[in-house]
C-alpha cells in the first residue's frame, strides 16, 4: 500500500471510528451508571446473605437460585459480588474527591500566584511525584495497621500531584484569558474570580481527570485490599475476593477470583474509555 493511500485510509477509518465511538461511549456510560447504581443498591439487591457460609456447598457450581454458585466457604457468589460493589467503589470515590479538591486548590493557587509560590509548589510536586502510590499505601498500612482510612488518605495524597500538574496547565491558560483581566478591572477579589470564573471554566478538564483518576484509584485500592492491607475479610470486596479465591484457583475452582476480577476490569475499562473521551472533549474545546 502506498503511503498516500494509507493516509487516506487512516482518514476514512477515523471517520468510521467516530460513529463507532459514540456507541462505545454510550455503552461505557451505561456500564458506569449501572456500577454506580450497584454501589448504592447492590447490598440491598443481594438475593442471599453475602456472609452466610454453608461449607456443604463449598465451591459448588451454579444451581437454581444461585446463578453463579458458591465460594470456597459456601457463600452465594452473586450476593457477595453485589454486596462488594459498594466497598469496591466507595473507597476509590473518596480518594478521587479528596485528590481532586487538593489538586485543584494547589493548581489554582499556583497558577494565580505565579512567581516563587508557583516555582516552590511545582518543585514540591516533582518530588512527591517520585513516590509510587501503592508503596506509600503499604508503608502507611504497616505503621497504622490494615484498614480503610490510611490507604484512602495516602492514595489521595499520592494522586494530588498528578491532578495539580494537569490542572495547573489548564488554570494558567485560563489565567491569561481576557475575561479574567476584565474581572480584575471590575475589582473582583482573586478568590471570587477563581471560584466563580476560573474553576467553572476548567471544570470539563476536572471531570475528565476525576474520571481517569477513578480508574487508577480503583485498581490501586483493589491491589491494596488484595494484599490484605485494605478492606478486611469477611467483608465482601472485589479486591479481597480475588485474594480469598486464590486457594480455589490452585484447586481448580477459580470462579470467585475470576468473577471478582472481571467486575473490576469491566468497570475500569468503562471508566477509562469514558475518561479518555471526556479529556479529548475538554482539550478539543
Amino acid at each position: 500500500m502506498t503511503i498516500a493511500a494509507s493516509v487516506l485510509d487512516g482518514v476514512r477509518t477515523r471517520r468510521r471510528r467516530v460513529a463507532g465511538n459514540t456507541v462505545v461511549v454510550w455503552v461505557c456510560a451505561a456500564i458506569v451508571g449501572l456500577a454506580l447504581l450497584l454501589a448504592v443498591f447492590g447490598p440491598a439487591l443481594a438475593p442471599h446473605d453475602p456472609d452466610a457460609a454453608d461449607l456443604t456447598y463449598a465451591n459448588v457450581g451454579p444451581v437454581a437460585g444461585h446463578p453463579l454458585g458458591f465460594d470456597s466457604q459456601g457463600r452465594d457468589l452473586l450476593s457477595r459480588l453485589l454486596a462488594g460493589a459498594r466497598t469496591s467503589m466507595a473507597g476509590p470515590a473518596l480518594v478521587v474527591v479528596l485528590a481532586m479538591a487538593g489538586g485543584t486548590v494547589l493548581a489554582v493557587v499556583s497558577a494565580w500566584a505565579g512567581r516563587w509560590i508557583d516555582a516552590t509548589l511545582s518543585a514540591v510536586m516533582d518530588v512527591l511525584f517520585a513516590f509510587p502510590a501503592v508503596l506509600l499505601a503499604v508503608l502507611a498500612a504497616a505503621v497504622f495497621g490494615p484498614g480503610l482510612t490510611a490507604p484512602t488518605l495516602v492514595l489521595a495524597l499520592a494522586y494530588t500531584p498528578y491532578v495539580a500538574r494537569v490542572l495547573r496547565g489548564a488554570a494558567l491558560r485560563e489565567r491569561a484569558q481576557p475575561y479574567i483581566a476584565a474581572c480584575e478591572v471590575q475589582g473582583l477579589s482573586a478568590f471570587t474570580i477563581c471560584l466563580r470564573h476560573l474553576v467553572p471554566n476548567i471544570a470539563p478538564m476536572m471531570a475528565a481527570q476525576g474520571t481517569l483518576l477513578f480508574g487508577y484509584a480503583m485498581v490501586d485500592f483493589a491491589a491494596i485490599s488484595f494484599m490484605g492491607l485494605g478492606v478486611q475479610p469477611p467483608t465482601s470486596d472485589w479486591g479481597v475476593m480475588v485474594s480469598t479465591g486464590q486457594p480455589g484457583v490452585l484447586q481448580g475452582y477459580p470462579a470467585e477470583s475470576l468473577t471478582a476480577g472481571l467486575c473490576i476490569v469491566v468497570v475500569v475499562v468503562a471508566v477509562n474509555l469514558l475518561g479518555e473521551r471526556l479529556s479529548q472533549r475538554s482539550e478539543g474545546r
Binding site: A223, V242, G252, P254, L258, G261, V265, V268, V269, L273
Partner: peptide, 23 residues
C-alpha cells in the same frame, strides 16, 4: 490494549495462573 490497560496485575496473575498453570 484498551482492555489490557485496565487489568490490574493481580487479576492478570490470577487469570494466567488459573489458565496456564492449573488448567
Amino acid at each position: 490494549t484498551t482492555v489490557f490497560a485496565a487489568v490490574p496485575s493481580f487479576v492478570a496473575a490470577t487469570v494466567l495462573l488459573s489458565a496456564f498453570a492449573v488448567g
